[in-house]
Write a protein that binds this DNA or RNA. Structure first.
Lengths: 232, 232
DNA sequence: CGGCTCATTGATAACTCTCAACGCAGGTGG
DNA sequence: CCACCTGCGTTGAGAGTTATCAATGAGCCG
């Protein structure tokens, strides 16, 4: 019995494109790995030695300038794919934000496997296209939105992408509540702001009665409609 | 003899993955189309009815907020692919910035063709992954760079991506010179700035002797090294 | 030669960043 | 068990950068 049989994301990850025989073959070249919160998995600019599926946890993709400014360019949730197939180097670093479980593959092995399994490549293509769409929408936020709109947009997106996992969702009405997988600094790095500005916007939204902050890492959306309006 | 035989981008577009027989089949479902400068080809949020290869010209991909702010999220050059296969709607609009020639396909026809030609999908996957990398690098610019750094980065990227076409390239040394496919407003929309700020940065770079501006639409880079340094 | 669009320049305002102090929570050790 | 220390977050004051508003200037076409 392979690790895949009990895999939490077996039917949501790109592996869903494969039948039992193929899964066994893929399983043979992959291995499970646990990453501690804060631990990096891939470094920007380094050789692209591995790719992976995320089973559990949240990871960030980030780039930076030489003088130390950082920008988070993507956030990856369970069932999603990380790494750069078919290329020599990584365009960005990958770091776990929470403790994470991933299913890693040597990149060359994966490339070869993918090349001979069109259904897998098709799935990967669909995901990459969807990720590109999402990334481009994020550019509108970075290029054109104010700090208030950015923080509101961030909370809206987070509540949507976290809900399948935490499932504390009251459809439509009422208060969604969730735990932030981000520190304030990381939120700032996602939004292209400073930590102080993020903090002030949180305070503002709290004062306006749109959200409550039970603790540093928890957010409850009191008025999803108004939050959505704030997002621009 | 099909239109593809004389196609300028036959060997650079995703079509390069196909043999003569396959090209003929693809040619049967596509048609050439010329787009005037400024004319839109796809609208944001509309049904994704078509996809295309760019043969000649430059096009922009853009999104906007409800209140009219615009952000250009990508720029497409000859041999590149536009449109959103495998999805119901377009995530962004596509508009020609110069007169452009494209080879368009009904999206459903293309989807079906792609699904039965793994080599084509592979090429498309590689391009999409590369485009995602490029887009993410652009996020660093939008989130963390100053106006001066943004304009310099823009000129650097433009000189690189335009050179295969215009080929006025003196390798390493000396002055690259090219024609901007963008108005000042469009440059502002790419960089997440206002037209006035872009103009002031052009003036500053000119005053510093890093570039010269022979006319509104032309740029000559006097000092590539210094420009690169300005890009941050 | 107007009349148009697009770009530049200037003055001012708004926003976000920077720098600095303070507060809160969790962990450690006495 | 409490005091202290440390890391993260909040709050405040002021500076800097970019946006906004307004006017001027340059190229283009009728």
């Amino acid at each position: 019995m392979s690790a895949c049989d009990t895999c939490l994301v077996r039917n949501r990850a790109i592996c869903a494109a494969l039948d039992d025989r193929e899964i066994a073959a893929l399983n043979a070249i992959g291995r499970r790995r646990t990453i501690a919160a804060g631990e990096p998995l891939l470094w920007e600019g380094e050789d692209a030695v591995l790719v992976a599926n995320v089973i559990e946890g949240v990871l960030k993709l980030s780039t930076g300038t030489e003088d130390g400014r950082e920008q988070i360019v993507g956030v990856v949730y369970p069932s999603e794919f990380i790494g750069r197939p078919f290329a020599k180097t990584n365009g960005h670093g990958v770091t776990a934000m929470t403790e994470a479980k991933v299913c890693v593959f040597n990149r060359r092995d994966f490339d070869a496997f993918a090349a001979s399994h069109p259904a897998l490549e098709h799935k990967l293509l669909e995901r990459t296209l969807a990720e590109l769409d999402r990334t481009r929408r994020w550019m509108l936020l970075l290029g054109r939105k104010s700090a208030g709109e950015r923080v509101a947009s961030f909370l809206v997106e987070l509540s949507e992408r976290l809900s399948p996992a935490t499932c504390q969702t009251m459809p439509d009405t009422g208060a969604r509540r969730f735990t932030l997988p981000f520190s304030r600094q990381q939120i700032a790095d996602v939004l292209g702001l400073t930590i102080e500005t993020v903090s002030r916007q949180f305070t503002r939204l709290k004062a306006a009665g749109i959200i409550t902050l039970p603790s540093r890492r928890e957010v409850e959306i009191s008025s999803p409609a108004r939050l959505h309006a704030e997002a621009g």
